Amino acid sequence: MSPVSRGRKPKKQKKSRGGRKPQPFLADFTRPVGRPAWFDPALAAAVAETAMLAGVSGPRELEEATATLIGARLHAADGMGATRYGAWTEELVGVLAERVREGGPEWRGAWFCLHGLLSITPAEMSDWVGEVIEELRPALPDAGDGWLAAMSQIAPTGEAWRLVDAYGTRIGLAAEFRYPEPGEPMVYLLDFDISGFPRLESAGVHDDLDHAVTAWRNEVGPSAAGAEPRPIGDGADVAVLTYWDMGELFVTGFESRTVMDNWYRSQRRADDLIAALAKRGVDLPKHRSLVEELDIEPTVTAFTTWYIDHHQQAPAPEPTEALAAEWLETALPGTELAVSPRRVQTVLQLVGDWMDGDLADGVRALLPEWIRWNAAQVGLPPEFTEAALAAMADLN
């Protein structure tokens, strides 16, 4: 294999352009010893599929096709409980570079795939892929780059919006992007569930804001029916990006195909959005420990007061404090009172993980009133309160 495709390593990641922690795409400390068995079959399948890329007609189509091609392989590996996606992608770049250098019928698809990676991978990886492309280019006088040369230049226009469902635990961030003129603008949507630690539920490209909003409402369901997009105005609107972690340590093995298609692209677009907002003077909130800085006393006091008003007696102190701690430890700043079916199930799972029988039973017995109290504080409609209460039974 050529020096371009072997022995070259992507540069180490630079500091994040905002409050979101950078996620290195090579994380040696997370890797098992040895080369994963899924690498070679995935490489062979991906390279074979690059042939279809040579027929795409523009940047957006190539971006989507590349994301889908890569996502198929990562999703298959995810289903086997495998990670090391960054190392696999590094090898893929090497194989693609070798195909281009060798020529033959497969070189053009590999060439297009390398350019597609320019648009969807995080900045540091994209920079490295760009260097590989530049080393290959002198040997390809007939490459006919045209619009391919613009693949790394996708950028946000500065237009960005936030969507929130009735529960307050499903967050959509939509931002307009475009390739250099005459590229048409498009909207990229990031859809997060923040009922526990932030989790990307879906992501993707849409023709415009209306299409993105419709897709988000359909994905989220009834709780999103009345949600309207609001322009992002301050860092609190995008606080989820401060706490979202797409690192391989957080892979569960149950990610959807849509999420894996956007494994790299979601990180790239999020960082681009952060940079665009920073130019407007909008910075992400500073990351703080949700556990170490937790103060449950105000919440315990407020709930206890409400409980006495409704039941003429105070709740048991120990279960109240335990419930408050579990509820608040995964609540992002500003969402302490947000209640949703998934947040209820998350808390119940945490309770079952470590609490002894008597304490766990006390917390479970108190949880319905805790749900009603939180719902009353935020004015949650009755039908959604009932859905949150029903989530307790769903987990049994």
Rank of each mutant, 00 (worst) to 15 (best):
M151N: 04
M151T: 04
M151S: 02
M151Q: 09
M151L: 14
S152F: 08
Q153H: 12
I154H: 00
I154W: 00
A155K: 02
A155P: 08
P156V: 08
P156Y: 04
P156G: 10
P156T: 05
T157H: 07
T157F: 13
E159G: 10
A160N: 05
W161H: 11
W161Y: 14
W161I: 03
W161Q: 06
R162N: 02
R162A: 13
R162K: 15
L163G: 12
V164K: 11
V164C: 00
D165K: 00
D165Q: 02
D165R: 10
D165F: 09
D165C: 01
G168K: 12
G168F: 10
T169P: 08
T169V: 13
R170M: 15
R170W: 14
I171G: 10
G172N: 10
G172V: 02
G172E: 01
L173I: 01
A174K: 10
A174Q: 07
A174V: 14
A175W: 12
E176L: 12
E176D: 00
F177Q: 02
F177M: 01
F177N: 06
F177R: 09
F177C: 00
R178A: 14
R178G: 00
R178Y: 00
P180Y: 11
P180I: 03
P180V: 06
E181S: 15
E181F: 08
E181G: 04
E181V: 12
E181P: 01
P182N: 11
G183Q: 02
G183I: 05
G183A: 08
E184R: 15
E184W: 00
P185E: 05
P185A: 01
M186G: 14
V187C: 13
Y188T: 01
Y188P: 11
L189Y: 09
L189D: 05
